[in-house]
Design a protein around this nucleic acid. Structure first.
Lengths: 144, 144
DNA sequence: TTCGTAAAAGTAATTAATTTCTTTTAGTGG
DNA sequence: CCACTAAAAGAAATTAATTACTTTTACGAA
């Protein structure tokens, strides 16, 4: 469904948000540990999220990652997915046709339109904040 | 969503089914042409489908691919997806956790369960036959 | 101020998986 | 036996994932 980078990105953001709830800054190492991901690769992904203004970073001793106060309640899964994987998942053709639309649809165009609509709605309405709360209460997990 | 191999596999099967409606056998070249796919790669994919008894093949002059008469009405997208991509799309965790279930769910477990349920239902209830009919009537297309 | 250290940012290289291309093999009908 | 067509195997190319290494920035102690 998503690329591995995107999966890591979502998990990382949920973790950072959970810690940001208590104004805790987290280091790259913390993140990689919490979500069981390769550290250097995770670094790349977090950089992308910083560039897209989804998370904040500070260098130097006691540096680390946080979620901007302003966004912490409104950030959705969708924003992360678009930042990392682009909008292919929402707009791309289910059978891989370059061009696929109402006027020249692939055989499953309408069926996929429905499914993708559901997916989009879910990703846009689910906030990272709500997921972080559940995580904090021990109702869900970020690593196996 | 699906691998490229799977996309080609679905498109190829729709095309073969359309031709099978009129008892026409199609060659590898025909298929690759009709769906605009690399010929050799398509060959490998069709081989997989043959091994999974989804399509039939015959070698030699006038050889080619057909859909077994018995299955032509009942074959669904789901069968092709499972044969090529496996059931990861139905059962895998949306955030890539090795282990993700009711007892130890990832943060989006329930949300994805719904979406995947919808997807599964769609893929299992949509027959290739119905798609082939629409294609034949010119309502949809297999290449851009 | 200056220097050392801790942290993220940036760059390049490696590995692994997927997709594509090439060649050979094998079965079938004329 | 010959020509045609799919099967099989392997090599090459592309893309995705991961790792290793260097640079930049910021803080704190001397």
């Amino acid at each position: 469904m998503f690329s591995k980078a995107c999966e890591y990105g979502i998990r990382a953001t949920i973790y950072i948000t959970e810690q940001s709830l208590f104004s805790k800054k987290v280091s790259l190492k913390d993140v990689a540990n919490a979500i069981e991901s390769p550290e250097a690769y995770t670094s790349k992904i977090l950089q992308q999220l910083v560039k897209n203004n989804i998370i904040q970073s500070e260098k130097g001793p006691h540096g680390g990652f946080t979620i901007p106060e302003k966004e912490i309640k409104s950030l959705t899964i969708s924003q992360i997915v678009v930042a990392i994987d682009g909008d292919q998942i929402f707009n791309g053709c289910g059978l891989g046709l370059k061009q696929c639309n109402e006027r020249k649809p692939c055989p499953v165009h309408n069926q996929f339109k429905l499914i993708r609509g559901n997916l989009k709605m879910m990703l846009e309405s689910t906030t990272i904040h709500s997921l972080a709360l559940q995580l904090h209460q021990g109702f869900s997990f970020l690593k196996s």
